[in-house]
């Protein structure tokens, strides 16, 4: 289908973009890579009066290290998550997640910021952001604030970004010595939306795992932190018993949606299988 008519403006700064949004009385949508917005227009799921293109704004680009945090501009394309050495070294779960995100041509245009702001419950980068304990830098007319990923994802397609605000960057704390990660998903076909997915990071010490962080996706309205599974693994070496305990704990952590094609019990089962696989294959990154 073809999109309904709209006006288009290319913003040169974040302030510029926010004032265009205000002038449109909120009947506007921000455009980054456009790979969720444009199909939603073609499918006529939304019909804003104005599209505000953010792609030319310098403040939204660039990848740089500051005081142990990697700042990734919101306009960073998925393909950069796959190839950029700074992201691979300092935000390795994004690199691990990227091959699972859609298809090569989509990854050339889709942006990390767009994916996080869109907050599709089945998408990979939001869960990776939660597992890495990333913080999201949001600009509003009042100034700039940083929101922890745990508080950022509010509901299905809903985040802490208020109408008119702009997600500027993603901040990821650098890995510490002994850090291990794992990422995997179960999908019907390569590049399809995940039926369940898991992003895991932890610090491996001689005495066992510390700082265990597990985010599952496609199991609820937003990425879900598996707190009971994290606790079940903390202080333990990874072995069959520890993995079995973490898998068992998912019963309390998850309350997956139930639908006739995909019962909640099946999603919980797949989540357990997947978490077991990921835990058995954790990789050292630092």
């Amino acid at each position: 289908m073809k999109s309904p008519a709209f006006e288009y403006v290319r913003a040169e700064s974040v302030a510029d973009a926010m004032s265009a949004y205000a002038e449109a009385d909120g009947d506007a949508v921000y455009l980054s890579g456009g790979h969720s917005v444009v199909p939603s227009l073609a499918l006529r799921l939304q019909a804003p009066a104005l599209l505000i293109d953010l792609s030319n704004i310098a403040a939204l680009s660039g990848i740089s290290l500051h005081d142990g945090w990697l700042r990734i501009g919101a306009m960073t394309r998925h393909v950069q998550a796959l190839k950029d050495p700074l992201i691979a070294a300092h935000a390795p779960l994004f690199t691990a997640a990227a091959p699972f995100v859609a298809h090569p041509a989509i990854r050339n245009r889709g942006t990390l910021g767009g994916s996080l702001a869109h907050a599709d419950p089945a998408s990979e980068f939001p869960a990776a952001a939660v597992a890495m304990r990333a913080e999201l830098e949001i600009a509003s007319s009042q100034g700039i604030r940083r929101v922890p990923a745990d508080d950022f994802f509010v509901d299905i397609y809903e985040t802490a970004i208020e109408p008119g605000e702009v997600l500027q960057a993603i901040h990821v704390p650098s890995p510490v010595a002994g850090q291990v990660i794992g990422f995997d998903e179960i999908a019907r076909r390569r590049g399809d939306y995940a039926m369940v997915g898991a992003a895991v990071q932890a610090v491996s010490r001689g005495s066992g795992l510390e700082d265990v962080s597990i985010a599952l996706f496609s199991v609820g309205n937003h990425p879900v932190r598996a707190r009971k599974a994290q606790a079940a693994l903390t202080g333990r070496m990874i072995d069959a018993d520890a993995i079995a305990d973490a898998q068992a704990a998912l019963e309390d952590d998850l309350d997956p949606p139930d639908d006739p094609q995909f019962p909640a019990s099946m999603r919980l089962h797949l989540a357990r299988v997947l978490l077991g696989r990921v835990l058995a294959n954790l990789e050292a990154v630092a």
């Binding site: 455009l31 293109d53 090569p104 050339n108």
Partner: peptide, 13 residues
């Protein structure tokens, strides 16, 4: 220089 879906890119972009 990179492959993209021409249906997902607006001409103005």
């Amino acid at each position: 220089g990179v492959a993209v879906h021409a249906c997902l890119v607006l001409a103005v972009q």
